[in-house]
């Protein structure tokens, strides 16, 4: 009975790994659209106002794009807490995650949130998301330094749940467009919030239930 349950959990975990691998692949492909870097490709096609008016926008945008893909990858390796026979694998990937996120990804994300599509409604969401993302990651770092690993683990999960909003936001968009075909910015305003709130609620629920 106990074994069966453990097996089921393992199968579930493997499914999650494959799921993540698939969506990571999609995110990687989106990132590769920005190589070579150009001022007017992909998402930037509709961001030329910001590109023209704020000289900082383009370098900060590219900082976000290029670092975030590594944040997503190292975050995943850190959260599964396995060393795969490599010394300090969890620690190194975690360090990389925290460093890239706190110094580059989150600050650049907050800057971009200020110029987000969809007006005040989505700007508010992206700004809160960015700030929460930075704080949760910083706290995870702080508790690891203090060797309070139970707290470290909780904050890491919160941080990674927000990291995964990169994927969930785009998934929600797909679902909403498939069923309702709203205008592009109406979708954007919805997914700006839907991208991260269910994620953080789920993690909070799991923490309460002592599953994390």
């Amino acid at each position: 009975m106990f074994l069966a349950k453990k097996n089921r959990i393992n199968v579930f975990k493997i499914l999650l790994y494959f799921g993540f691998a698939y969506f990571f692949w999609l995110m990687l492909r989106l990132t590769l659209e920005y190589i070579p870097a150009k001022p007017d490709i992909s998402f930037l096609m509709i961001k030329q106002t910001e590109v023209m008016e704020h000289s900082a926008y383009l370098p900060i945008f590219y900082t976000h794009v290029y670092t975030s893909i590594f944040v997503l990858m190292t975050g995943f390796f850190a959260i599964i807490r396995k060393d795969f026979g490599l010394k300090n694998f969890h620690r190194s990937s975690g360090k990389m995650y925290i460093f890239l996120l706190v110094i580059f990804s989150a600050p650049s994300g907050i800057y971009m949130g200020w110029f987000a599509n969809g007006g005040l409604f989505s700007k508010t969401s992206f700004l809160i998301l960015g700030i929460f993302w930075w704080i949760s990651t910083f706290l995870a770092f702080k508790y690891a330094r203090e060797k309070k690993f139970s707290e470290h683990k909780k904050w890491m999960w919160r941080s990674f749940a927000l990291t995964l909003s990169a994927i969930t936001l785009r998934l929600w968009k797909l679902v909403i467009v498939y069923f309702f075909q709203p205008n592009p910015m109406d979708v954007y305003q919805i997914v700006a919030w839907l991208g991260w709130i269910p994620n953080i609620l789920l993690v909070e629920f799991l923490i309460r239930k002592k599953l994390i």
Binding site: L26, L30, D40, S42, L169, R170, L174, V177, Y178, P184
Partner: peptide, 16 residues
């Protein structure tokens, strides 16, 4: 043209 291209490439795909 730029916005049309964006709508074609992005509107009902995984992305923004």
């Amino acid at each position: 043209n730029r916005f049309t291209k964006y709508a074609e490439d992005k509107y009902d795909y995984f992305g923004r």
